[in-house]
């Protein structure tokens, strides 16, 4: 009787091939976009500084006649302190912080647009008028020969919500 494919010797290669396939896709994506080498299942850890310490993300917007520029921690703190979103402020603030922190691993345009749209919609619901949202992603680059760190902007996207 003929064995099914999953019970044949060839089945040994299914999972290693899948892992290799996903890793090669990740390699292609990080070479051509701003995806960090540390994420995406490609095993490129340690070849750059860890994004948790080297990448920052900033939300910039107009509010009450002021231009505000905040990192995730600052945004969370402000929402909680001002109770900007009523009783659920701490949940909303934690969600925004978490989403922003995750976005810095792979800050592509449509994802930033989606976040900005959610941010504006939730703010509008609570009666806050927010406009002109921009998102910046900064990255620290170390030159081992000179011991110098350079703080570069790798993404600066505006007009995220039409």
């Amino acid at each position: 009787m003929k064995k099914s494919f999953l019970r044949s010797d060839k089945a040994i290669l299914i999972i290693p091939s899948l892992a290799l396939f996903i890793a090669l896709i990740q390699w292609g994506i990080f070479l051509t976009t701003d995806l960090t080498e540390w994420k995406g299942g490609g095993f490129g850890m340690y070849t750059t500084l860890h994004p948790n310490t080297a990448r920052t993300i900033w939300l910039e917007y107009d509010f009450n006649g002021f231009r505000v520029l905040q990192r995730p921690d600052e945004l969370q703190k402000r929402i909680v302190e001002e109770k900007s979103f009523g009783e659920r402020s701490s949940d909303v603030a934690a969600w925004f912080k978490n989403e922003m922190q995750k976005m810095r691993y792979f800050p592509y345009r449509s994802r930033l647009e989606s976040f900005a749209k959610d941010f504006k919609a939730i703010a509008n619901q609570s009666g806050q008028k927010i406009s002109n949202i921009c998102i910046k992603v900064g990255e620290l680059k170390l030159n081992p020969k000179t011991d110098e760190y350079k703080y570069e902007i790798i993404k600066n996207e505006c007009e995220l919500v039409k």
Partner: peptide, 20 residues
Amino acid sequence: LATLHKGASLFYWQGGLFHD
């Protein structure tokens, strides 16, 4: 793959990560 990534990274060969 981990070895290939490291081997292909000039930053890694220069000891950048350990430096940091």
